[in-house]
Write a protein that binds this DNA or RNA. Structure first.
Lengths: 132, 132
DNA sequence: TATGCACCCTGTAGCAACTACAGACTCAAG
DNA sequence: CTTGAGTCTGTAGTTGCTACAGGGTGCATA
């Protein structure tokens, strides 16, 4: 049998044990069968599912979005465009974050290059924090 | 007198009332004096301090970092380079985040352009989620 | 057989940084 | 005098984990 316990699932997927149990509580993965000693026992399908979850999480999807993706993926004959919609929406969010961070980076670096040393009282950076 | 109540402070700074009270609990701002009716009453200095906090938060500093900045800013005769250090460190973090997001964006957009429609069963995007 | 030791169990509490109530009070205008 | 907006305290919820505490399990080794 290729069943694994939670530690095996953890090393197979790179998801921490505590996090796996959290996903179970959150309903992202179903409650696995148990061994005689009450250890969780996972199938290869469970491994695949958790890999999917890990990968989507790494791509920055929220657990809510992951749930939706899993939901759609479960219905094999459904139209694929719903996934495209989700992914595209997520891409737009990522683009917005990148833009925000880039603007912020710009401000921060301008602040830093304006620093000429001296005491706190006449620090250019602190001035930049306070202006409007 | 130019004292304001919490609502005034909120509109003057763009920080929500609940958040102001949270900052007070967290010790980022000191407990203000109270009116006869037990309303919080803020001075212009309080407004300036909260503006400072808001701006540094908007620049992505954590509350812990904000605390450190406020601490340094309070000692006017101290050397300014500590602030430079903090800001530079923060800039490095921002750069890392931008790099991460950009890599992620790359993957996401590759996935999306690979989609040729059809049913979920042969969806390229879902395949991308599962591979590796 | 005893005894380590690694692994697993449940349940709860904590983290950041807020946000959202509930239920009561205050204050100014009409 | 009432109405409505503003404020008060206190507590619980959010997201996505992470970290215990205090036990049980399973296997190898002395």
């Amino acid at each position: 049998m290729t069943q694994v316990t939670i530690g095996g699932l953890s090393t197979a997927t790179g998801v921490k044990i505590e996090t796996i149990r959290y996903y179970e509580r959150a309903g992202l993965i179903s409650r696995p069968s148990r061994t005689s000693g009450n250890y969780r026992s996972y199938t290869p399908d469970d491994v695949a599912r958790l890999r999917f979850i890990k990968r989507t999480r790494d791509l920055g999807f929220s657990l809510e979005e992951v749930r939706a993706l899993l939901d759609i993926a479960a219905q094999e004959d459904r139209d694929c465009c719903e996934i495209d919609v989700l992914a595209t929406k997520h891409l737009a969010e990522v683009d917005r974050k990148i833009a925000d961070l880039t603007a912020l980076r710009q401000q921060l670096s301008a602040m830093i290059t304006s620093c000429r040393g001296g005491t706190v009282a006449d620090c250019q950076i602190l001035g930049a924090f306070q202006q409007d």
